[in-house]
Measured scan of single mutants.
Amino acid sequence: MEVRTIKVFTTVDNINLHTQVVDMSMTYGQQFGPTYLDGADVTKIKPHNSHEGKTFYVLPNDDTLRVEAFEYYHTTDPSFLGRYMSALNHTKKWKYPQVNGLTSIKWADNNCYLATALLTLQQIELKFNPPALQDAYYRARAGEAANFCALILAYCNKTVGELGDVRETMSYLFQHANLDSCKRVLNVVCKTCGQQQTTLKGVEAVMYMGTLSYEQFKKGVQIPCTCGKQATKYLVQQESPFVMMSAPPAQYELKHGTFTCASEYTGNYQCGHYKHITSKETLYCIDGALLTKSSEYKGPITDVFYKENSYTTTIK
């Protein structure tokens, strides 16, 4: 009895394709271990004539594949690729409408935090270190965002349907971005203890939790000093293409032309909904596939993004 075979390709990165001759009487799992086709788990399936010449994702289970996976995804987590594939199996079914010149995501599976993050990423200057993220990001900007969303979920250790947080998501993504040249110098002034300067680099240099107003941050924000008295913390120097200011959701007025974009969060910790506000020729609110415009805006804002380049204080 002759062994019926077909020729397929296996890959971990969709760049390096490895030619395989597979036995049609055995499952993919018996031949390769966990195997995925377009995100779908085909591990328990036997090869079919229609699979001839198709590319299958496999887990990096030998040295060659491990090197290829690390170079593309910059992670050695053995569960990463499987999590990416199972997320992709959902995100490829989502709709990605162009809204006001940006790629958004039609609401499904509690994905409003991903839509808000995706919209924000198209408006701030950011370059990702893992080629996987950078490639998928370019495709997302062009309207094909399924891979990018699935990668975000995998890097953030999230599953489809789980509630997510924009600030946490951005923080994970910033860790995989090139923020080497970003720098922030802060000064804390206390009447009792004097003053202390701190220099922050990388992710810490672009994120701040405690106030939404970048102007206020430049002037000074009140913080408790270690001595128990009130101290003032203010920005001395900022070198970065953008800054992200966050605070627990509270009524906040966004003035046209003073910011790049913002995240609105309605609801409580267990259950809520994100919308995205962007400042173009007027203010726009993007909620999944829905767009509304207004000249002014007041609502429960939790993150505001500002364009920056270089700032030095005039406070002496």
Rank of each mutant, 00 (worst) to 15 (best):
G29N: 08
G228K: 07
K54A: 13
Y72W: 11
V206S: 05
Q20F: 09
S25A: 12
R184T: 09
Q195R: 09
A132H: 05
A145T: 06
Y84Q: 02
G194C: 08
L212W: 03
V189L: 08
A69T: 10
I45T: 10
W107H: 08
K127Q: 15
G39D: 10
N89M: 15
E308L: 04
Q196N: 11
K44E: 15
H273E: 01
T232E: 05
Q31V: 13
D23I: 09
K293T: 13
M207Y: 04
L118V: 09
S246D: 05
Y234H: 07
A150K: 02
T43C: 15
P300D: 12
P131M: 06
A289P: 05
L133K: 11
I15H: 12
R141Q: 10
D77F: 06
L17E: 11
M209W: 15
T103P: 06
A145R: 02
Y284K: 04
S181M: 12
S279Q: 12
W94C: 05
K316Q: 13
T19E: 09
M245K: 00
D135L: 07
Q20E: 13
Y36F: 12
Q30V: 11
K201D: 04
V236W: 11
F128S: 03
V189N: 09
C227T: 02
Q270G: 03
F305D: 09
P300W: 15
T198A: 10
Q134K: 11
T282W: 03
E239M: 08
M245R: 01
Y234S: 06
M26W: 14
A146M: 05
Y265R: 00
Y137W: 07
T43W: 02
H90P: 04
G33Q: 06
L126F: 03
A136F: 10
G299W: 05
K201I: 08
C271L: 09
K7V: 12
L119A: 12
L37C: 11
W94I: 08
Y306W: 00
S263Q: 05
E215W: 05
H18R: 12
N157V: 05
H90V: 12
K280R: 14
S50A: 12
C193P: 03
A142F: 12
T91Q: 08
G220H: 00
V12E: 11
S294A: 15
V58S: 07
Y208W: 00
N89V: 14
T313M: 15
N268I: 01
L151E: 07
Q123F: 03
E168F: 04
V42R: 05
I152T: 08
L59V: 12
C225R: 01
I15F: 12
E264G: 08
K191W: 01
S50Y: 11
T313L: 15
D135G: 08
A87E: 00
T226F: 10
C271S: 12
N110I: 09
T211I: 10
Y84E: 08
T312L: 12
V12I: 11
Q222I: 11
D135N: 12
A132V: 01
D77V: 02
K191M: 11
P224R: 15
A40D: 13
S279L: 01
S295A: 15
L151W: 07
G53S: 11
P47Q: 06
I15R: 12
K219N: 09
Y208E: 03
T5H: 14
E125S: 08
L173V: 09
E215L: 06
V99R: 12
F80I: 06
T55Y: 08
T302F: 08
V236F: 01
Q197S: 12
T159P: 09
T35M: 10
L121R: 05
K275G: 04
T116H: 01
Y28G: 09
G220E: 01
M245F: 14
P97L: 12
K201M: 08
Y252T: 13
D13N: 15
A231C: 01
T91E: 04
Q237R: 13
A289C: 08
E68V: 07
Q122D: 10
K54G: 11
N268V: 09
V166L: 05
T292V: 10
Q122R: 06
D180Q: 13
L212I: 06
V206M: 06
T226L: 10
Y72E: 04
T211G: 08
I286F: 02
G164Q: 08
T169K: 01
T192R: 10
L200G: 08
A231V: 05
N129G: 08
E215H: 09
I105T: 04
V8T: 12
K46R: 13
T314L: 15
K280I: 03
K44F: 14
L17I: 15
A146E: 06
A150Q: 04
P131F: 04
E52K: 13
A140I: 12
R139Y: 09
V304A: 00
T282H: 06
E168N: 06
H18I: 03
A108P: 05
A87K: 10
V8K: 07
K255V: 14
M26V: 13
Q20M: 12
